[in-house]
Amino acid sequence: MRIQRVFGLFVVLFVVVCVLPEAGAQEAPAFRLPGLDGKEYALADFRGQPVVLSFFTTWCPYCERELPLLDKLYREYREKASLLVLGIDLQEPGEKVRRFVEGLGLSFPVLLDERGETAFSYRIFGLPTLFFIDPQGKIADVILGGSDEATIRRKLDRILWFRGLLLPEVRNLLEVLDGVVLLDLRGHGTNPFPEKPGLRYEVARSGDDLSHLDPQGVYVILAATSTEGKAFAASLAARGFRHVYYLLVDGAKE
């Protein structure tokens, strides 16, 4: 009996390793699918954003428990970190999926993989399956089977390369990290944190040559508006910068 269990575990691990796309090593397969909202969604349109794909069906109890957790995190990060969650239902009638989604109160887009072609390209063999795609379009992590909020948050940290922080959060960041680079887009060249040792301050503008910056560094963007700071932070993330923050101006939530 023990030999059978060990052999069974080996088979499961072998299937997971050999079937699922390797996280961090390949581009996420492209797709274009219709949404319940009548729009078409192509993964390529969201390059530069962190994306979570949730493959599910209405009859899967683990999916039903996990989807509201994803919706909670989507609401938390969609503005300040441009997080996009896309639910992808496998080969079910649209009206059935719509009733299911409305019953759960999901706010993120839900797409219909009517022929199962997208599921095939992602090698889906169990539900739910989550794919965490970084702003450069690469698969950063995968979760097979239902998960909990804490685990999903840890996985999200691998793809949330930029996010907005309130002023107290920026101060805390500067307290615990050395070598932070402050990029000031406001144009007046005044360092608002002169008391912070080791802080590197630069005046920058959109369109500047930033090739001297290290993508592995930590950056805080100061801008006149949260929208401007977010756009600049997103442009850095699209170039591979993984630790970029922007100041949420006047307590803004986005």
Rank of each mutant, 00 (worst) to 15 (best):
Y219M: 04
V52G: 02
L247A: 04
F55K: 03
P61R: 13
Y219T: 01
K80D: 09
G38W: 12
S82I: 02
F241I: 05
H188Q: 12
L236T: 00
V176H: 14
L104Q: 10
F56W: 15
I3A: 09
S121K: 15
V220F: 06
G164F: 02
R115H: 12
Y74F: 15
A119G: 09
S206D: 10
F193A: 04
A252M: 10
R171V: 07
A140P: 01
R65V: 11
D208C: 09
G198D: 09
P168F: 07
V181A: 10
R99G: 12
S206A: 08
A81H: 03
Q91W: 12
L210V: 15
V180Y: 06
F31I: 11
R158K: 15
L70Y: 03
D178C: 06
P93T: 08
L53F: 10
T190G: 02
G145V: 08
R163P: 02
G187R: 09
E254P: 02
I152T: 10
H212M: 11
D157I: 08
E169T: 07
P215F: 02
V97S: 01
L106K: 07
G240R: 08
L144Q: 15
Q26C: 07
R154L: 12
P34E: 09
F108C: 05
K80E: 11
E228C: 05
T118S: 10
P50F: 02
R163M: 12
K253T: 10
L185T: 04
F232M: 05
V220E: 08
R186E: 12
I124G: 00
V220S: 04
F56Q: 02
P50S: 12
G105T: 10
R78I: 01
I124Q: 01
L53G: 00
G207C: 06
R5E: 15
E66D: 11
L167G: 05
K155C: 06
L73R: 04
E64M: 11
G179S: 09
I221R: 02
L84T: 02
G24H: 11
R32D: 07
E102Q: 15
S82G: 05
L111F: 04
V17R: 13
T118D: 01
Q26F: 09
G116E: 14
Y62V: 08
L144E: 10
S226H: 03
C18H: 14
G126A: 15
D148F: 14
W161F: 12
A237H: 03
A81E: 02
D113Q: 08
I159Q: 00
F55Y: 10
Q49C: 07
L36I: 10
L106E: 03
L130R: 01
W161V: 01
A224G: 13
I133K: 00
E169L: 07
A42Q: 11
C63I: 03
F193E: 01
A223K: 01
E79M: 08
E22Y: 13
Q49A: 06
T58P: 03
L127C: 05
P109H: 06
D157N: 14
V51Y: 04
H212T: 09
